[in-house]
């Protein structure tokens, strides 16, 4: 029997737990403009003093995200690497993760980090990471992108280990019902966590704690 896409559970048993003693790799995906880079920056600012962190970015056609992170000085510049994905950001995180694996392995060899964040290029609701590349994945959506997105589900919304509904502060301005988004997300996510946040305007302790918990598993 075929499953509906939003019933697929990417986190269910098909992949290994993060390996003890190895850097935990967390993929951060989501549509263009949803706030992936802002989330990476926020996580780095909070966690850099307690963990050794490195970042791989997958811009579609520039190194802008990596440049932004370096300019913001969220980490030492050499801990942030950009890879080119040949017009296919979802291929590079799922079907053929070679370029990203190379980048992660180089960072691991050089810095022996506790945590590697892999930020995908902005893509669509079906773009998810292969667990051959990452251990856990966060999917980010934008409140202003439509409050029906959680209801529609899809592999990212339904299957990610953590769903982040970002820019909730914009809800009243764009007529988005964030309570409904949370309820719809809970319905398709089968108990996996969802965080409603506004990354640029407020702290994100729940996401930071979730990331800490993933790292603790392997400590």
């Amino acid at each position: 029997m075929l499953h509906r896409l939003d019933e697929l559970d990417l986190s269910g048993g098909a992949h290994d737990h993060p390996k003890p003693g190895r850097a935990v790799r967390i993929g951060i995906g989501g549509p263009v403009g949803c706030g992936k880079t802002a989330l990476v920056a926020a996580l780095c600012r909070v966690l850099r003093d307690e963990l050794s962190v490195a970042v791989v970015t997958n811009d579609i056609y520039t190194t802008e995200d990596a440049d932004f992170l370096r300019r913001e000085a969220v980490l030492d510049a050499e801990r942030i690497v950009a890879v080119r994905t040949g017009c296919c950001p979802h291929t590079a995180i799922r079907d053929d993760v070679t370029a990203n694996l190379d980048a992660v392995e180089d960072l691991v060899e050089r810095f022996d980090p506790d945590l590697v964040l892999v930020e995908s290029g902005g893509d669509n609701l079906t773009a998810t990471f292969s667990y051959g590349l990452i251990d856990r994945q966060i999917f980010v959506i934008d409140t202003a992108g439509g409050d029906d997105v959680p209801r529609k589900g899809g592999p990212g919304v339904a299957g990610a280990d953590l769903l982040v509904i970002n820019k909730v502060d914009l809800g009243p301005l764009v007529g988005a019902d964030t309570d409904r988004m949370a309820a719809d997300a809970a319905r398709v996510r089968d108990g996996k966590p969802t965080a409603l946040v506004s990354v640029r305007t407020a702290p994100i302790p729940e996401i930071v704690d979730w990331v800490r918990a993933q790292v603790r598993v392997t400590a």
Binding site: V83, T85, G86, D95, D96, A99
Partner: peptide, 12 residues
Amino acid sequence: SRLPTGGHAHSG
């Protein structure tokens, strides 16, 4: 070309 060897990111 679906064999995952990273070729999709190169244009020759």
